[in-house]
Amino acid sequence: MLQVLVDGLIRSAELSLLAVGLTMVYGVLRFANFAHVEFATVGAYLALPLAALMPLPIAAVLAIVGAGLIGVLADRVVFARLRTASPILLMIASFALGIILRECVRAIWGPSPFFYELGVLAPWRVFDLRITPTQVAVIAAAAVAILGFHLLLSRTRLGIAMRATADNAALAQASAVNSERVIATVWFIGSAFAALGGVLVGLNTQVKPDMGFGLIVEVFAAAILGGIGNPYGALLGALVIGFAENIGLAIDWSSVFGAFGIQTDPFLYIPTGYKAAIPFVLLILTLLVRPQGILGARR
């Protein structure tokens, strides 16, 4: 059972970076950015050739910065001209951008998966758990990044400006907050976080062109579940989704139903083919029952 919790933690770590970035962009720009998850893919792929030349952590940092810059560029080229456009057009434009990013990666690197060359690392055994050093690094990296982000939001002028713009853009601008600069920063940090998330996913599993898009519903589910626009909500949402996925598969649902007096076959497990359905269903339930999310949306 503990193993399931550890797996959940790893998944949450991966998702949290993506969810926080997505929710930030939503908070400041007010549209659902479908290209966001593709920055994870871009980041993971940028790190590949770099990792052949230098130690992985340094390659990762360079890749993340690169992805962040691409994010800023994307805003300049596409979204800056659409500041007053309807959210639907922005959504479709971001979907198109996402496709462009993903297909560029596919065109350059091909459809087959890649792996970071790390050699075989024996997993550690702690009590009954199996966890590899890589997975520990994944959790640690995510934790450090989130902590850093929290400090940024709460202690720095930039962070306050970001929160102000997310809460009330007109008022923030009237108070001499340079919203264009805030927006550029949000794109940079958001895309960089997504890229870090991508590198971590790539480390934990593999690097392939659909890796970002495969996460899109989970990331949106996490962000909305926690309260869209709220970075702490996104973190909470990622934790819930990450654990729910792993725990949901491990539970024998016959006992759950039994507790409600419903008789089913014994050994009722969600088939692994439907693992991805868990965040989907959670998303739909959230939207039906409490669309503002757990911590309340900042719209």
Partner: peptide, 19 residues
């Protein structure tokens, strides 16, 4: 009110059906 939310959930619904 939930227009863009509804959009995302339709994406999820279609994927569930495909799954």
């Amino acid at each position: 009110l939930q227009q863009d939310y509804w959009g995302i959930s339709t994406l999820a619904i279609a994927e569930i059906v495909r799954m």
